[in-house]
Amino acid sequence: MSNFLLLTVYGLADGAILALAALGFVLIYKATRVINFAQGEFLLVGAYMFYTAFVVMRLPWILASVVGVIGAIILGVLVERFVLRPLVGESAISVIMVTIGLSSVLKALVQMFFGTSVREQPKILPTGSIEFLGATMPVNRLLVILIAGVVLAAFTIFFRRSRHGIAMRAVADDQQAALTMGISVRQIFALAWALAAVSALVAGVLLADLSAVEQNIASFGLIVFPVVILGGLDSVPGTIVGGLTIGLLKQYVSGYADPGLAEVIPYVVLVAILMVRPYGIFGETRIERV
């Protein structure tokens, strides 16, 4: 029982981070119809930017977070302006490949500046543990769930209440209609990339705090795909459901069956879902016409 609870906490923490990473992914897809294969590298770059501010420049962690957020916004806007905007209207394969190329460049840049060795970063979250129902719970993972929950809630409120959030939803729904209503689609695209980079930054920093600052953070980007397929490529609530499901599933499989199997099980789920529901569980079905 205590093992089960522990796995659940680990799974929820992983799932919460996954949901954050997937949120950025869905934001970009919803607003711009781009599949971002560089999402994992956004996490990686985010984690290293925070590391630079926090450890190298010795800023207090609040200031370091601010520096990280500003860096992430700049990264997102630059990528949108110089890499994705020229490709508006191009085929799916071009857009996929350009983000793959981008991921290769980002990863190489991180490798050039920081090398491949694992960087130690002082833990921001307390590392103790609390007793609950006979299980020893790591505090930092509980806090990760909390922080991710707060960030996700903030994003949801932003979409529902704020002017820009509503404009984003309008663009996602129908670009031309949004244009006629005086919404700048360009600004919304830039905003989507900036927000995606920020949510990736949060995910990257949390992930780095749980493990370490290293190149492996980028591999988290691939597990985002089962998450978004489970939730639907264009569904924000779907990312939370999908993230938590995949996070729990991975932990249970690795805890009760085989850690190796846990790496591949999300993809098996992905194929199974796509066979039954080609647009994911919460995804919007599109009617195609000639």
Binding site: V264, V271, L274
Partner: peptide, 25 residues
């Protein structure tokens, strides 16, 4: 390729990514 009968474009790309990971496993 069977998923391709129902999937298109980006969804198919992700499905083939899964086939890559499954074969690798």
């Amino acid at each position: 390729g069977l998923p391709a009968l129902r999937l298109k474009g980006l969804y198919l790309a992700i499905a083939t990514l899964a086939s890559q990971e499954i074969i690798m496993f």
